[in-house]
Design a protein around this nucleic acid. Structure first.
Lengths: 135, 135
DNA sequence: GCTTGACATTGCAGCTACTACAAGGTTTAT
DNA sequence: ATAAACCTTGTAGTAGCTGCAATGTCAAGC
């Protein structure tokens, strides 16, 4: 049961442009072609694309996914590799969350400072000025 | 008191490449030139670049900064604009933090599931499989 | 049989915010 | 004289797509 790229797109929620892009960067193998040159996909292709989608949702990079898929194609468990990648991921995410929380409180402070100013305030005392002197 | 691009770079902590890039995308006005064609900067330029640096630290996009600078050059207070941008920023940051927290707990769950498996486990029960079925 | 509309194809340009060259010119010190 | 440390321009690369142009294909309706 073969499907076209449009149907694959619908079934996975990945745009046709993105699917072609994945093929171009060799994240997906070259697709089989119908007589008219259209791409054709089977169950296995759908499953592989869904795997990529879920991995992306976990913020693995396309390079990581490529590696993981390579293990997968060879039928070897990429566990150790995946585990290591996940550990790195978690560290990065926690760092990023921390940075964002910091950032949020800085912007909030600036925003509140801006709100407490009268409406006709001049450049000198504007939020713009606050940006100049803060951070 | 004019300085070269290298000195500007040192005083601001922005690389010379980035400074030239900022000029190329018209975030900075075309620099004055010395007799030999070298770029020359004054106090005002240093201050402007530091302003950009602080705004970037607050994660304003270069486009936002361009807008804010335009107000600044015209000597108008961009407060309302900046305030709006900041409100958008805060919303986005909170959304992003929320997403990351979600992501972290998903990866942690996967990671722990992976750790509790024996070392010689096959593909079927591998973290790879967990990715396939989770999320 | 012909047209219309929805699909498909390739290839290339653009997005953000830089970074990294290459190939050359200038200045300063030894 | 020459080396090093600077400067110049221009171009291409990074990640992960997105969008477009120009063209080809196919099924349905009139």
């Amino acid at each position: 049961m073969m499907v076209s790229i449009g149907q694959l797109s619908q079934q996975t929620g990945i745009s046709t442009e993105t699917i072609r892009y994945y093929e171009r960067i060799a994240l997906l193998p070259p697709a089989k072609r119908a007589a008219n040159g259209y791409r054709q996909y089977d169950e296995r292709d759908i499953e592989r694309l869904l795997f990529i989608k879920r991995s992306r949702a976990l913020d693995f990079t396309l390079n990581d996914i490529r590696e993981i898929l390579a293990f997968r194609e060879r039928n070897e468990p990429p566990c150790q590799y995946v585990m290591t990648v996940m550990e790195t991921q978690i560290d990065e995410i926690e760092q990023r969350i921390h940075d964002l929380e910091q950032l949020r409180s800085e912007i909030k402070a600036l925003h509140e400072a801006g709100q407490s100013l009268p409406d006709d305030v001049q450049m000198k005392t504007c939020v713009c000025h606050l940006i100049q002197t803060s951070v």
